[in-house]
Amino acid sequence: MDLNSLLNKKLIFFEAKPKNDVEAIKILGDKFIEEKYIKPEYTKTVVEREKNFPTGIVLESLGVAIPHASPENNVLKDGIAVLSLKEPIIFHTMEDADNEVAVSIVFMLALKENNEHLSMLQKLFKIFQNNELIKKLAIVSSAEEFHKYITEAI
């Protein structure tokens, strides 16, 4: 299972304008449901978990978030859904729920089992550590381009 096969072009979005983290998760959750990756319950558990264990991450040049939850039989297929935001929204940071981060790209994860995603997750975090790539990803405006930059980089 590699990142490329998990990152479906149909699940990369640019136009939505969520007001906050919960809205962003619901938008991506609905897309996941449309493409039959998850059951609706998964979105609820992700919203719930984001409250208790936020997933915002401060990178060198911008903020990202990786909302996800335990699968609990609600994940039908592994995938990553992406929402790129022209106007960043506030998430709370993973290591300190009292801290806020303005998030430009939301990567919602749907993962079926523990520990089977190591190489995919490592690639995702490699992307986060690649400042030039992250900056490029934040300004592209088509799923094709977004997908291409990631595929070229990993």
């Binding site: 978990r49 208790n52 264990f53 997933t55 990786i66 996800h68 939850a69 335990s70 699968p71 993973m94 994860l109 993962l111 523990n114 520990n115 995603h117 190591l118 997750l121 490592q122 975090f125």
Partner: peptide, 14 residues
């Protein structure tokens, strides 16, 4: 450890 024991802890474990 992480919040769900599934994503970031997998990477850190490795």
């Amino acid at each position: 450890a992480c919040g769900t024991g599934i994503a970031t802890s997998t990477v850190v474990n490795d």
